[in-house]
Nucleic acid binder design. Structure first.
Length: 464
RNA sequence: GGCGGCAUAGCCAAGUGGUAAGGCAGAGGUUUGCAAAACCUUUAUCCCCCAGUUCGAAUCUGGGUGCCGCCUCCA
């Protein structure tokens, strides 16, 4: 089965062919660390997690790089407002970012380069562009000269002449040769305070786009497989990256570009002014586990706008619970007499799962196959038509897809008091004191512990 | 003005020519001491509207309506 991705560059689905057999170089645009990441940011990182995990599932060795942009107008502005040195200010958000990734089970990339650790690489890149006549200096500022780069606009399919007529170009950028030229390096000014580097380009700081060109090429080479990000990054950020990178090397920069659609909240654009910019922490406070958000973010196709609602989050919680109950109940099932149906069910799921994800990460189709298996295996289990060997093969198949989904609830622990209450209830049931048994069950429920009486005895789980 | 996306049940959503996956929610039943979990049945004569192509269209073509995004530092 051929793995196919929709390439933003060509706007068509293309079979994925790595530059080097069995390996993928993946650059995923990361956060600007001037604040806590929102669920909108995580929507994109979740898409990249699916991409990464599925590539690994397919047997590729993935080298993923995610940049941390820790120097730009906003990081400078906000750190100064807080009266904290830039590096210290951004460190707090970087730490939280990592913690959130772990909570959401977004796999760690191989590299998280910070922009401020790569100033020399950026300076080199700007020098190369100067040498090739693609950049120029005005009073210590350095700009990329778009008119010298023939293919500018080829990713976003924008017409540069059309850009010039755009309404949002501010007229005070008089020092540039062309309004569309963008900054590679910014000369220091007073507003920057103590944020600057003394370099061959002079005293200043990098422009916004240059770090991604410098760092992606450093870790992945001048020509690599894939580059992803949110749709908003397509223009100007990725367009400018292409111009900088290809301008400097003369080589094709990236083979496959993929962009994820935005998350909106209750049908509206997520924005500060609407007060609907949720962070993971906000949802935890409302009683939702990180896994629930993982499920919600993962299960909508990445090129589809995702409408975040609390109703949807509740639905995700229920679906996730069904998935986990299935795993738990199946593992506890001792095995019955095979009807010979189970292996075909497992095979069908694995085939369907893979063929759907092969088609540009069609997660909805893939999950449909998983839930088909859950229903079919549950039925065989209910009818005692599943052998222990078949059970194990079904569990092994679930282990396999867990590489991609990572929905499995981690084993919980309960303290001795709760253990004791459960034993008391079991004793009460044995002596047919159902009033006491039900009271204990209600008490446990109030403490967040759900009890289930099964043929194999009582089971408990934490309420999610 | 330019470029692009989307419209499928109460909600989410797959399906790109062959007669509507899956999840959530709802209803009825089986099971259970009662629950929970699970299973079974049920919930779109039909996929925004109109016209066309075709033996056949949610899927293709044309027109219309509605919603959304981008057009220089927002994932």
């Amino acid at each position: 089965m051929a793995l196919v991705f929709r390439n933003s560059f060509t706007r068509t689905k293309e079979e994925f062919k790595p530059i080097e057999a069995g390996k993928v170089g993946l650059y995923t645009c990361g956060p600007t660390v001037y604040n806590y990441a929102t669920i909108g940011n995580f929507r994109t990182y979740m898409f990249e997690d699916l991409l990464r995990r599925y590539l690994k599932y397919k047997g590729y060795k993935v080298t993923q790089v995610m940049n941390l942009t820790d120097i730009d107008d906003k990081t400078i502005r906000d750190s100064q407002a807080a009266g904290i040195p830039l590096k210290e200010y951004t460190a707090k958000f970087i730490d939280t970012f990592y913690a959130d990734l772990d909570a959401l089970r977004i796999e760690r990339a191989e590299h998280y380069p910070a922009a401020t650790d790569h100033i020399p690489e950026m300076v080199e890149l700007v020098k190369k562009l100067l040498g090739r006549g693609l950049a120029y200096e005005v009073d210590g500022d350095y700009y990329f000269k778009i008119s010298e780069f023939e293919d500018y606009g080829k990713l976003a399919h924008l017409d540069i002449d059309g850009l010039k007529a755009g309404a949002r170009i501010s007229s005070d950028e008089y020092e540039k040769e062309s309004v569309s030229d963008f900054a590679l390096w910014k000369a220091w000014d007073e507003a920057d305070g103590d944020v600057y580097w003394e370099t061959e380009l002079g005293k200043g700081r990098p422009g916004w786009h240059i770090e991604c060109s410098a760092m992606s090429m450093k870790y992945l080479g001048e020509h690599f497989d894939m580059h992803t990000g949110g749709v908003d990054n397509m223009f100007p950020h990725h367009e400018n990256e292409i111009a900088q990178s290809e301008g400097a090397t003369g080589k094709k920069f990236v083979n496959y570009w993929m962009h994820s659609e935005h998350l909106i909240v209750e049908g509206r654009k997520m924005s500060k002014s609407l007060g609907n910019q949720y962070t993971l922490e906000d949802l935890l406070k409302k009683g939702y586990a990180p896994d629930v958000l993982r499920h919600l973010l993962l299960t909508t196709h990445y090129r589809q706008q995702l409408n975040f609602t609390f109703r949807g989050l509740d639905g995700a919680r229920s679906a996730l619970e069904r998935y986990n109950d299935f795993l738990s109940n199946l593992a506890d099932y001792p095995g019955g007499t095979s009807s010979g149906e189970a292996d075909a069910v497992v095979e069908k799921m694995l085939t369907g799962f893979e063929s759907n994800l092969d088609d540009d990460l069609n997660i909805s189709g893939a999950l449909g196959c998983v839930f088909d298996l859950i229903r079919d295996i549950n039925r065989l289990r209910a009818e005692n038509k599943l052998s222990a060997e078949e059970r194990d093969r079904a569990l092994a198949a679930m282990d396999r897809i867990e590489m991609v989904l990572a929905f499995r609830k981690k084993a919980g622990v309960i303290d001795a008091d709760i253990e004791k209450m459960i034993t008391q209830r079991t004793d009460a049931r044995k002596s047919k004191d159902f009033a006491l048994a039900d009271k204990i069950r209600d008490d446990l429920l109030a403490m967040g512990i759900v009890l289930e009486d099964t043929p194999q005895g009582v089971k408990w789980k934490k309420k999610v």
